[in-house]
Design a binder for these strands. Structure first.
Lengths: 347, 347
DNA sequence: CTGAAAGCGCTTACAG
DNA sequence: CTGAAAGCGCTTACAG
């Protein structure tokens, strides 16, 4: 009798092995899990039969009773950006040796989607969570809720100022200072800024920008600080707007690399040469190392290290870290000089 | 009394809600799952209480009885290559609307690791698998085993000629033909090839290369077909070897983009200008679209579409597709012209 | 060294 | 429309 159910052969269970060998399920379980109190001969028989029957422990049954899944949830805004995919690689390296597996979710920059994914992950009983949140920095509610539920999590790249939590992120203040100093050294005095969305990385970079200008004795022109975003599209829009003003800066710092690349597109469209007419800097070095030339002048810090640190931190928390000392790890950036910056045009 | 166990608060269960409301677990389950036979008022009460208690269904319990996890396993050789991360994005788009979640594994090009990951995924009771396998093309054993166990899977990018399976991949024959014809049109007659590892994509591209030469009436020089690999390092090695021979070609087709970029590095190190002294082509367009200029002449086909097609195909198989008609989807490539190709040097 | 009992949190039949 | 029973495949105490 055929059913229209998906036909998936029933998999071997511990009971099957036990029955075949005339043992109890308990003994088979012990033998398979390396429990010491099992006769060597018994263990050998069990292991052999398990291999023959292609036995694989059922994670659901195991998870149901052990209350741990050995699963780590990761939520990032964009998987196809090397920035985040390399972080993901670092996480994986860190958690794999301990038998953990990664479940990856892509929020695509949408808080709604991020909330659904986090709910799904926690409902799926991941043992912990690593997230680069897309929620505005003054809206930590989702993660505050997790903290309350006792779900271990680590925030990467961005964080919520008002929420105590484990964090691993780049030094946003230092990163933008490197850019401004580089431009000042080239002779620029009129520097603009394209802002990002309302997450910590954005606002810290803007604050760093202002502070750097002040420290260098450069004037801050409010007209040259324009709203933008984290994407190429946002950078393009912001660029069109800023570059068509009556007066424009000779250099612009963008809040991140995609934004800077969008800005560069707009500059070209408006007939401006980069860097002859306009210098541009980004943040995050999204361009892959294997390319022969770096286009954008930008900053970078180790993404693999962000991932690895976040992974190790989370495992420590899962292992029973006290919530008293939530780690806050900040990585130092370095400047990467590309073709997008040069001396300002002579008047 | 404190335990040194990881302290994770017990989560709300269906029983909790039932007890609070004086209902049976059964009714709560039905109310929450949109079963029709529940009084509206009851359903409302259940839903409200569930929300208040932050109830999340336990996937383990559900999976244990329903025998499906709503999890899809994906195994790729390298997450930080845009090629694979974009495929992953496409998969996600395809499976998410049906409530499936993606578990991502990175084999890092190691068959050992791939085997461990597949075992883990199947043991974790994923409902299906999508893989770009790193196993040699004449070693389909791992996937043959899955087929026997009745685990639905789709192979992407590469496949095993001897194994009947669902496949979604680029047209490797056409892709290399585009490269050779492009070079021939530029005037090249001496064209070399850097091979890849022993997977279908590699061998099909080599076969396509030979056929294209023949079709265009160009001579095949065995000295100019050298072993290489899929990585920048492999391309660099192969380049050093090939370019230092007494006679060398005026153009080289590499088996993929990373290999071509490694080759370009070697060419520069040996003092050869690209494309003036040597033209180079890749396959797969690994360079991101947002960059202002395309360096490598290469071919591409939609990765999002590979992912989406693989995802949809897998869902169909999970939904009970008959193993009689395993789909084999082939995507057509198009040529992307960059700065790495030009006319051959005049003697 | 081995096993019988109970239970993890759900859902699938089966009754009412 | 609602519920009592049984069971998914394991593991955690508890006995022997």
């Amino acid at each position: 009798m055929s059913r229209d159910q998906p036909m998936r052969r029933r998999m071997t269970t511990i009971q099957d092995i036990a029955a075949e060998l005339g043992l109890s399920a308990m003994t088979v379980s012990r033998a398979l899990n390396g429990h010491p109190d099992v006769k060597d001969e018994t263990r050998a028989r069990v292991e052999e039969r398990a291999r023959e029957l292609n036995y694989r422990p059922n994670r659901f049954a195991r998870g149901l009773v052990s209350r741990q899944s050995k699963l780590i949830g990761v939520v990032i805004p964009e998987i196809s950006h090397t920035f985040f995919s390399e972080i993901t690689g670092g996480i994986q390296e860190a958690i794999e040796p301990d038998g953990y597996t990664l479940i990856l979710c892509n929020s695509a920059g949408s808080p709604e989607r991020e909330r659904r994914e986090v709910d799904m992950l926690v409902g799926g009983r991941v043992d912990g969570l690593i997230a680069a949140s897309t929620f505005p920095q003054d809206d930590p509610e989702l993660y505050a809720g997790l903290a309350e539920e006792g779900v271990p999590f680590v925030l990467i790249d961005r964080y919520f100022p008002a929420l105590e939590s484990a964090r691993v992120h780049g030094d946003d203040d230092a990163t933008i200072r490197l850019c401004v100093e580089h431009l000042a050294n080239l002779g620029h005095r009129d520097i603009g800024f394209i802002r990002g969305p309302d997450v910590s990385t954005s606002s810290l970079r803007l604050a760093g920008f202002r502070e750097s200008l002040r420290a260098l004795g450069l004037r801050e022109n409010p007209d040259w600080i324009v709203p933008g975003g984290f994407t190429v599209d946002a950078g393009r829009e912001a660029g069109l707007q800023l570059l068509q003003r009556p007066s424009r800066p000779t250099a612009i710092c963008a809040v991140n690399d995609p934004c800077a690349l969008g800005l560069a597109q707009s500059a070209r469209r408006l007939g401006l040469k980069v860097p002859q007419d306009l210098s541009i800097t980004g943040v995050g070095k999204i361009e892959p190392d294997y390319l022969p030339e770096q286009y954008l002048t930008t900053t970078e810090w180790s993404r693999a290290e962000i991932g690895a640190t976040a992974g190790r931190t989370l495992l420590a928390m899962i292992g029973g870290g006290s919530p008293a000392d939530l780690p806050d790890v900040m990585l130092s950036p370095k400047l990467v000089i590309g073709r997008s910056t040069g001396p300002p045009p002579s008047r």
